[in-house]
């Protein structure tokens, strides 16, 4: 099996290193509007992704676990051409994301934790827009939208109503449908089931399995849900403070730490042991 994604020594930092001399000369400090800022009014440098390397095989479901602010979303944005790395390289099916972004964009799609849509438009109108950007014809899109959304459990009437009238769970299903419409070879799922009720979560997870089994789609999944990671992913990388601290199959990761209280360690035990943090306790600190 060939490599679908190769991430090699990728570095991404945010913030500005240079001090602003004129600010230091001022008798008072201008309002910097945020506790993250240093005295000079600039945000401190944050290493969002710190020399990360891994590869994904074609057809693999690769999980990335990490606390908020651990660098998961930044990593997905780097792969999806929305951010440029400061160092290192990323290739998607042998295409470089910096030098050949358009070719990469043809092969990928993404579902983010926020279902981002034109809120006054209906799912049909939003998906028509999204799919046309990938070159699909209107007639094909309409039938495909109905097929995918009903498969995801959406009521047919809801497809023509404004998105703002839908629950977050339903909006997230439309986001999944948007990503599936373009038939990506690589699907980037950034916490796609966060905030969904258990039933919706299962429906989305079933679609993820089906995509891999029936269509051979390669999937990069970030999640806070240990069970989801354990049941869906072939391999998992644990990220903390921008670095990968462990990477292996779920079973092998669980052998990396001693058994607590005589029980078989869970992925959560592994995560706590390796990072010293809870997955969801930290306040949202994503920097990009």
């Amino acid at each position: 099996m060939s490599n679908a994604v190769v991430v090699n020594e990728v570095l991404k930092k945010f913030g500005k290193p240079t001090d602003q001399t004129w600010r230091r000369l001022l008798p008072y400090k201008p309002n910097t509007n945020g506790s993250k800022s240093q005295d000079n009014g600039r945000k401190p440098i944050v290493l969002a992704v710190n020399r990360v390397s891994f590869d994904m095989l074609e057809g693999e479901i690769f999980g990335v676990l990490g606390p908020n602010g651990g660098g998961k979303s930044t990593l997905i944005r780097l792969i999806s051409t929305l951010l440029l790395p400061d160092a290192g390289t990323i290739t998607v099916f042998d295409r470089d994301v910096v030098r050949q972004p358009r070719q990469v964009q043809w092969m990928i799609n993404r579902v983010s934790v926020e279902a981002s849509f034109f809120k006054k438009l209906s799912p049909m109108e939003n998906l028509l827009y999204g799919a046309r950007l990938y070159g699909m014809a209107g007639g094909d899109i309409r039938s495909k939208v109905i097929e995918i959304l009903t498969r995801l459990g959406l009521d047919k009437r809801a497809i023509l109503n404004p998105m703002e009238e839908m629950s977050r769970g339903m909006q997230q299903k439309v986001a999944v449908a948007r990503a599936l419409l373009s038939r990506p070879r690589l699907l980037l799922l950034d916490e796609p089931t966060t905030g969904l009720d258990p039933r919706s979560k299962r429906e989305v997870q079933a679609v993820v399995r089906e995509l891999r089994e029936e269509h051979g789609v390669t999937i990069l999944l970030t999640t806070h849900d240990m069970t989801e990671a354990e049941t869906l992913c072939d391999r998992i990388a644990i990220m903390d403070q921008g670095s990968i601290v462990a990477m292996n199959t779920p079973e092998k990761l669980c052998t990396m730490v001693p058994s607590p209280n005589g029980h078989k360690p869970t992925l959560e035990d592994v995560f706590l042991e390796l990072t010293g943090k809870s997955l969801v306790a930290d306040e949202e600190k994503e920097v990009a």
């Binding site: 944005r77 929305l82 964009q105 981002s116 849509f117 809120k119 950007l133």
Partner: peptide, 14 residues
């Protein structure tokens, strides 16, 4: 305003 900018700019459109 709508929060869709990333989806538009990651599409294969010049």
């Amino acid at each position: 305003w709508e929060g869709t900018i990333e989806y538009t700019l990651m599409a294969p459109v010049s």
